[in-house]
Design a protein around this nucleic acid. Structure first.
Lengths: 336, 336
DNA sequence: TCACTGCTAGAAACCGGTTACTCGATCCGG
DNA sequence: CCGGATCGAGTAACCGGTTTCTAGCAGTGA
C-alpha cells in the first residue's frame, strides 16, 4: 500500500527536499528559462518522491487566470444546451481549459447572482439566458466579460444565435416545392422568443409571396401538446404542418397515426431542431438541424479571442440545415 | 453608462475607502462575529460603491476549499451521464457547490490525468469510468479522494451502481407472467460490463428456473443494430425480446414493423434505461427505468458526507423500476 | 589583472483573501 | 475607584504558488 500523504505536498516541501528555493521549483515545474540540469533533476526527483503536483488554486491566484470558463444555462435537460455544453467542453478542453457549469433551472431571478458567482471563479462566461429581461442583461454583461451570449443579441457583446427565420424559410420553400399551399403552424410557448421568430418568419413569408395560406394552432413545446392537436390539424384542411419543434412534430405524428391520417400521404410534417430521434420515427422526420455542437465550439472560439485580448467579433447567426426525410412529400392530387 | 472598473475591486480597495482594515472588511463580508453596526454599514457602502465582490479564487486558497466538485464522464452524449450530471448539478448547487465537468471522450488513457487535473481544482470527484482498468483505478482512487464512483465498485470507495441484474430479473418475471417461454436477448457491445451483467443475469434466470429458453443475438447498443437484427428476431421463433437498451429496442421495433410483425401481438419487446422517448414510440416501450437523476443526487450526498468528515458509506445498488407499457403483452395462442 | 557581461538561483514581494493573536477601550463587580 | 473580563478592530502571518529584483559567480575582452 502506498502511504497516504498526510496532506498534499506543497512547493515548499519539494524545495526543502531538493535543497533549493521555492522559486527554483516553480521554474522547473513550468519548464522555465534555464535551470542547471543537475538541479532540475533533483527537483523532479523530489517532486516525484512526494507525489507533488502544483495547487491549481494557488496558481490561479498568482497568475490571475484560472484556465476555466463557465457555461450558464436555464435547463440541462434541453438537448439544445446539452449539445452546446458538449461542443464547448470539447473545444475548451482541447485548449487546456476546464468547464464550470451552472444551471438556473429556469429561475430567472437566480440567474444573475448565479452568473456573477460563477464568473468570479473563472475567466469568462458563456451565457444562455432566453428569459432574462434585456435591461438586466445589459447591466449584467459588463460584469461578466469576457462573455459570449447564446441566442441573445446585445450591442458590443459577442453572440451566437440560431437563425430560426432562415430555417423556417428553408422548410417552407421545401413544402412549397412539393405543392403545399395550405400550411398550419403548431405554435410553441407564447413566451418563447424563438417561437416568436418562427412565427414572424412564417407570417412574412405567407404575406410576401402570397404563395400559401398560413393557419395557426396554439400548441406548446412538448410531445403531448403536439399529440393533443392532431385532430385539429386533421380538420384544418392543411396539407402540411410546420411544428414548433421536433417533439411537437412527434406528438402530432403519433396523433395523426392514431386517427388514421397518413404521413406524408395525406399530410406532410416538419419539425425543427433535428434532435437525435428525428431519424428514427416512422416516417423519419423532415427537420431543420440546428448546429448545436458547432455553436458550443464557436462559443469557445469567441471566448478565447477575448481572453487573448482580441475582440470576440460581433454577432453570428447560424443557419439551420434543412434535412429532408420521409415525413414530407408531394401533395396528394387529393379528392378533386 | 456605468464606468467600467479598471479591474475588479479588491478587499484592500474597500478597506481603504471605508477606512478600516482588510480584516474588518473580511469579517463584514462573511457576516462574522460582531462588527460595530456603524462600521459595518460603512464597509458595505464602500463595497457597493466599488462594486466589490470577493475573489473566489483567493477565498479558496485561504480556506483550503473551493466549494466545487468535478464530474468526470466518458461521454456527455450518453443520456445516462446527462441525467447524472443534472442530478449532481442540482443537488450540489442546492448546497452551494459548483460543478466542474470533464469529458474524456472515451479516451481511457487521458482519463487518469484528466481526473487528477480536475481534482486539483476542487474538493472532490464523481467518477464514471466504465473502461479504466481496475488496477489503474485502484492506484488513482486515493489521489482523488473524496471520491464517489458511478457503476464501479472498489473496496473502501463509496460507489453507486445500477443493479442491472435486478432490472433484468423484473423484466423477465414480467415476460414470464405473460406466458413467454422463448426469449431472445439482443446483446450489447461485448466489451461493455453492463452487457455482461445483463447477460449473466439472463443466463442464471434461464438455468435456475428452467421456465424459459434463452436465445442470444449479437447486436450492439445503437438503433441501427437493433434494426439490423429484426429479421433474425422474427425468424428465431421467440415470442419476446429483451433488448440491451431502449435504442436497440427501438431499432428492432422499427425493423419488425417494416417486416409486418406486430408488437406486442406476435412478439413482445422490452428495452432498458427508460430514455425519454420510450414513452413515445408506437407502441410505447416496456422498459426498466434507471434512476439516473437520483444517482446524481445520491452521488452528491455521498460526496458531501465525505467533505463533512464522515465516511461516504459503502456501495449502493439502485434497482431499476419496471415500467410496463404497450410493447409487451400476452403470448398469442398462436398458430395451433 | 580588472571591469564588464551574462547567467543562475535565491530573497522577497505579490496575488486576494482569512484568521490567530494582540492591544486598547469599555463595562462590570467588588 | 480599581482590576479583570469582555469586546471590537487592527496587525501580521498564512494559504501555495509566480515573478521581479538582486547577488554571486563564471566567462570574456581589453
Amino acid at each position: 500500500m502506498v502511504e497516504q500523504q498526510r496532506s498534499a505536498a506543497t512547493i515548499s516541501g519539494v524545495a526543502q527536499v531538493a535543497g533549493v528555493s521555492r522559486a527554483t521549483v516553480s521554474r522547473v515545474m513550468n519548464g522555465r528559462s534555464t535551470v542547471a540540469p543537475e538541479l532540475a533533476e533533483r527537483v523532479l526527483a523530489a517532486a516525484r518522491a512526494l507525489d507533488y503536483a502544483p495547487s491549481q488554486v494557488a496558481r490561479s491566484l498568482a497568475l490571475g487566470r484560472t484556465a476555466t470558463i463557465a457555461l450558464i444555462v436555464p435547463d440541462l435537460s434541453n438537448p439544445m444546451f446539452q449539445d452546446v455544453l458538449r461542443g464547448l467542453s470539447q473545444a475548451a478542453g482541447e485548449d487546456g481549459h476546464r468547464l464550470l457549469i451552472a444551471e438556473s433551472n429556469e429561475q430567472v431571478e437566480d440567474e444573475e447572482v448565479l452568473a456573477l458567482e460563477a464568473r468570479r471563479r473563472c475567466d469568462g462566461v458563456v451565457l444562455a439566458s432566453p428569459r432574462l429581461p434585456t435591461a438586466d442583461l445589459e447591466r449584467l454583461a459588463p460584469q461578466l466579460a469576457p462573455l459570449v451570449l447564446i441566442n441573445r443579441k446585445l450591442p458590443g457583446v459577442p453572440s451566437l444565435s440560431v437563425d430560426y427565420a432562415a430555417g423556417i424559410q428553408d422548410l417552407v420553400a421545401h413544402l412549397l416545392s412539393l405543392g403545399h399551399r395550405r400550411i398550419v403552424y403548431l405554435a410553441g410557448p407564447p413566451a418563447s422568443t424563438s417561437n416568436r421568430e418562427r412565427l414572424d418568419a412564417l407570417i412574412k413569408l405567407s404575406r410576401d409571396g402570397r404563395e400559401f395560406e398560413l393557419l395557426q394552432v396554439p400548441c406548446g413545446a412538448m410531445f403531448e401538446n403536439g399529440h393533443a392537436v392532431a385532430g385539429e390539424v386533421a380538420a384544418s384542411g392543411a396539407t402540411a404542418v410546420v411544428a414548433f419543434n421536433d417533439m411537437v412534430a412527434f406528438g402530432a405524428l403519433s396523433g395523426l397515426h392514431e386517427l388514421g391520417v397518413s404521413v406524408p400521404g395525406q399530410i406532410s410534417m416538419t419539425g425543427f431542431d433535428d434532435i437525435p430521434f428525428a431519424r428514427f420515427t416512422t416516417p423519419p422526420l423532415t427537420s431543420a438541424a440546428v448546429p448545436r455542437n458547432t455553436l458550443g465550439r464557436q462559443a469557445w472560439e469567441r471566448l478565447r479571442m477575448q481572453l487573448d485580448g482580441n475582440d470576440g467579433a460581433g454577432a453570428a447567426d447560424f443557419r439551420p440545415r434543412l434535412l429532408v426525410r420521409g415525413s414530407t412529400g408531394r401533395t396528394a392530387e387529393g379528392p378533386r
